[in-house]
């Protein structure tokens, strides 16, 4: 079976004034369906850049990226938007909920851009909200929720459209350890349901609790637990 995501010799170079800065220097890595992977590394190691490319928010300067068997490395902006919309769910460190929308409306966002009808959107978002344990609070605004609850809403938004991959960028970085653990438990539950999850984290406890662990350093994969096994 083809991997869900596959990076082949991916390089990403940024131009900073007159200097070229290499964030990724030939990364090749594959992610199978149903895997739950932690990407760790120090600041500037390239883990966020890799996640942006995997999430189709950015394009590699060189190399290929196959998502679901399709080479998406050099697609146009609109095509990448469509792929993000259908195949990828994001969870951010800062939750990134839209303050003037209700919880249900925040969760509905990917469906909105898919063109899903309002009633169906509402039904699907309610299912996702139920799944993260906030069923009674769908009418509330983000300001009325605690940090942990906001991150649960963000998780619901990331899975409401049944993406192929859920990408989490430091999902517990803004939470206390207890709440963080709850969030990781939610992610584990989603993984148990068969979802492919990739988490960028600084937290070694989280990383060690996941099935696969990729260590990045200086724009390269330094260690991949799946290969060393």
């Amino acid at each position: 079976m083809a991997p869900v995501m596959e990076l082949k010799a991916v390089e990403r170079t940024y131009r900073m004034g007159k200097v070229n800065l290499s964030a990724l220097r030939g990364v090749s890595v594959t992610f199978e369906e149903g895997e739950m992977t932690a990407v760790v590394g120090s600041s500037g190691s390239g883990k966020s850049t890799m996640m942006h490319i995997l999430g189709c928010l950015d394009r590699p300067t060189r190399g290929e990226y196959f998502l679901d068997g399709e080479n998406v490395a050099h697609l146009e902006d609109d095509a990448l938007s469509e792929i993000r919309n259908r195949k990828i769910g994001f969870i951010f460190q800062m939750f990134n909920l839209i303050p003037h929308l209700s919880i249900a409306e925040n969760v509905e966002l990917p469906l909105f851009y898919m063109g899903t009808r309002r009633r169906r959107r509402h039904d699907l978002s309610m299912q996702a909200i139920e799944l993260v344990g906030l069923g009674q609070r769908w009418r509330h605004s983000p300001a009325e929720l605690s940090g942990g609850e906001r991150q649960r809403v963000a998780i619901a938004r990331a899975i409401v459209h049944e993406p192929r991959v859920v990408l989490a960028d430091e999902p517990t970085g803004n939470l206390d350890s207890k709440t963080g653990a709850e969030i990781i438990a939610v992610l584990h539950r989603l993984h148990d349901q068969g979802r492919t999850i990739l988490t960028v984290t600084h937290d070694n406890n989280i990383a060690s609790s996941l099935t696969r662990r990729i260590v990045m350093r200086d724009g390269l994969v330094e260690n991949d637990s799946s290969e060393s096994e």
Partner: peptide, 16 residues
């Protein structure tokens, strides 16, 4: 700005 980023991440095209 952040809202725009979130919407783009959720699949909004430039025209949206």
């Amino acid at each position: 700005t952040r809202e725009i980023g979130v919407r783009r991440a959720c699949g909004a095209k430039r025209k949206h």
